[in-house]
Design a protein around this nucleic acid. Structure first.
Lengths: 210, 210
DNA sequence: TACCCGATTGACCGATCGGTCAAAACAAAA
DNA sequence: TTTTGTTTTGACCGATCGGTCAATCGGGTA
C-alpha cells in the first residue's frame, strides 16, 4: 500500500527511465538485430551502466519482447479502425497514408520488426500466423466484395496488401539506400507527401479502383 | 611456377571449399547481420573447424565484403542489360521479372543486402552513392523521355524504381511473414508467377504505360 | 625414402558477451 | 536519528567472441 508514491518524482521517475532504455534499445536492435545488439551498446546509448538496464528489464530477451510488443500495439492502435468505410478508394488511401505515417513516426520500431522477420521471425511466429493473418484475412474478405461489385479490378487482395506494405515500408527500412540515391540526408515532409501521393496514385489506378 | 597443380583435385579442391564457406556465411549473415553472425556458426554450417574458415577467408570482415561483392556482381550481371529496348512496357516488365528472379535465385544474398542497408549500410555507402546511384539516374533519364513522349504517366521515375525494388524484394526479405499469412511453407513456382503477373499488371497500369 | 608445402586442426589469446551480486547511495516513513 | 525499501553501480562469473599459432597431416616431387 505504499509503493506508488515515488513513481513520479524529480525527472519523471521509473517510467521515464524505462522509456529511455526502451528507446535506446529499439535503436540498437533495429540496426543490429537481436543477436548483434549488445546490452553494453544499449546501456551506453541510454547513458546508464549496463547493470541498470538489466535491473529494469530483467534480461535481453524480455527487453526485446517488450519492444516487439510495443511496436505491434502501436500498429494495432492505428491500423485496426481502417476498414469501417466501404469505399475502396478511401480505405486503400487510408491504409497507404497510415502505414507511411507509422513508418515515419516509429522508424526504429519498424526496422526492428523488419530485422525480426529477416531473422526468420523466431519470436513472432505466433503473431504472424495468428493475429496478423486474421487481420489480413478480414481485409481480404472486404476486398473480394469490392471486386465482386466491380469496384476494382480482379486482383489477389493478399498481393495488394503485400504491395502496400512493402512499398511504404521501403522508405524506412531502406532509408540509407533511398538517401544515398536521392543524394540527401533524410526525407523532408514534402518528400514524404510526394511519395505518399505517388503510391496512392499508382496503386489505386493500378488495381482499377473507380 | 609450381603452385597451381593441386587446385582441382579430389572433391573440387580449393574453390569448392571456398564456395561452401561463402554459402554458409551468406546464410548466417543474412539471418543475423554482420555483428550477429559468428564465425563458429558459419563454420558449423559449412562443416569445418573455425580455424579453417579463417585460413581461407582471412577475417570476418573480408568474408563479409566478399559476400557483398559477390551479390552486387550477380545483380550487375543481369540488371545492366535491361534498358536496351525503348518500349516502357518491355523494360519495366523485364525489370520486375528479373528482380523477382534474382530474389528467388539468391535469397540469402538478397537478405544479406537488406540487413546491410538496415544497419545503415556501413560497408556499402560508397557503392550506394556511386555505382547504384548512377545506375538509377541513367534509368531515370530514360523514363523521363518516355514521359515526355507520352508513353507513360508523369510520375517520379525514382519512386517508380523504388516501388519495383521494394515490392519484389518483399517476397524474399519478408518470406517468413508471407509464408505465415499465406499459410504455407515457401512459395511454389506458380505462386511466384502469380505474384510477378500481379506486380506487372498493377504497376504498369498504375503508371499508365500504354 | 626423404623432403616439401599447402591444408587441417586443437589449443590458446585478450576482449566482450549476457547475467549475477553485494555494497553503497538514496529518499521517505517511523 | 533510525529504519525501510528502492535504485544505482562496480566488480565479477562462465561462455563465447574474432583471431593467432604451432603442430600435424597428406599428396607430389626428387
Amino acid at each position: 500500500m505504499q509503493t506508488t508514491q515515488s513513481l513520479s518524482r524529480e525527472s519523471g521517475g521509473r517510467e521515464a527511465v524505462e522509456h529511455t532504455i526502451l528507446n535506446a534499445a529499439e535503436c540498437v536492435f533495429a540496426r543490429h538485430g537481436y543477436r548483434g545488439a549488445s546490452l553494453q551498446a544499449i546501456a551506453d546509448r541510454a547513458g546508464l551502466p549496463k547493470a541498470n538496464v538489466l535491473y529494469y528489464m530483467g534480461s535481453k530477451q524480455v527487453l526485446y519482447l517488450k519492444l516487439l510488443d510495443r511496436m505491434m500495439r502501436r500498429w494495432n492502435a492505428v491500423l485496426d479502425d481502417i476498414t469501417t468505410q466501404s469505399d475502396p478508394r478511401e480505405v486503400l488511401s487510408d491504409f497507404i497514408r497510415t502505414k507511411m505515417m507509422l513508418g515515419q513516426r516509429y522508424p526504429d520500431g519498424s526496422k526492428l520488426f523488419a530485422a525480426e522477420i529477416l531473422a526468420g521471425a523466431p519470436f513472432l511466429a505466433d503473431y504472424l500466423e495468428g493475429e496478423l493473418r486474421q487481420w489480413v484475412e478480414s481485409r481480404v474478405d472486404v476486398m473480394r466484395h469490392w471486386i465482386e461489385q466491380g469496384k476494382m479490378d480482379s486482383v489477389d487482395p493478399r498481393f495488394l496488401i503485400f504491395l502496400i506494405w512493402s512499398s511504404t515500408q521501403h522508405y524506412v527500412e531502406y532509408g540509407a539506400q533511398v538517401n544515398a540515391i536521392l543524394g540527401q540526408e533524410g526525407l523532408s515532409e514534402q518528400d514524404i507527401d510526394d511519395v505518399t501521393a505517388f503510391l496512392e496514385r499508382v496503386i489505386l489506378k493500378g488495381c482499377g479502383v473507380r
